[in-house]
Amino acid sequence: MQIAIASGKGGTGKTTIATNLAYFWQKQMKKKIVLLDCDVEEPNCHLFLKPTWHSSQKATAKIPSINLEQCTYCGKCSDLCQFGAISCLKDNVLVFPELCHSCGGCTLVCPTKAIIEVEKELGEIKIGAQDNLQIIHGYLKIGEPMSPPLIRKVKEQATQEDLIIVDCPPGTSCPVIEALKGSDFVLLITEPTPFGLHDLKLAVEVVRDLKIPFAVGINRSTLGNSALKDYCARENIPIILEIPHERNIAIAYSEGELLLKKFPQYEKNFAPLWSYIQEVISSCKN
């Protein structure tokens, strides 16, 4: 089972909710939980859970490499490539690795087999644990533009039998889609401000497009105005979690302290989530 924590706007509390939910469930249910930190551009889950790292591996993607001795400069590769990642000139072939999507088309189309695929580094995948909680995170290499292939590789580390929590990147474009794919339920985190509401509406569009059941969690819920709750009521979107706007919560967060460890009184806010999500998922399957 895969539950994703997402939001349109950044900094609304995705990581706070994902880490606390993972911590709370493994403590309550004595069940193995896998937390996938798919915000590979800025992964932060480990800062709060402080896992012991067990392994680390380089994540790579395939890019073309040209053997010019075999190349006839026919140009079929650059004609096929939709991403402008390979350019055939009169007496040279240029490869632009940062544009390549690793589709393998150029290798297939080359009539003289002058193109082979080599590995390009995307970043690093680290696996660690704390108690019954496994944490897997991806770390995008600085200067590497494409995060979806790394997100895909992070997700490959978990198996469908696991109870998986995915901490998604912010936004509504391809990295988010990659992180959300395969999820049984999405919890959209937002805050009661105009920016929070505006970006929530975009995130709702995304999960509706993907046809994944979802609900909303409101962080800093005592801040701002009522427009967010009005919107959720109008759209029939359940609000299943609220965390108040408190200075002491913000200070604990700034120190990298886990909310529920520091303030166990908020466990009651998280307690109803499991049965709610279970119910929604099983009703969707029927």
Partner: peptide, 11 residues
């Protein structure tokens, strides 16, 4: 600018 360090940030 956008958040993160990936494609839209580099652009």
């Amino acid at each position: 600018g956008p958040p993160g360090i990936g494609c839209p940030v580099i652009a």
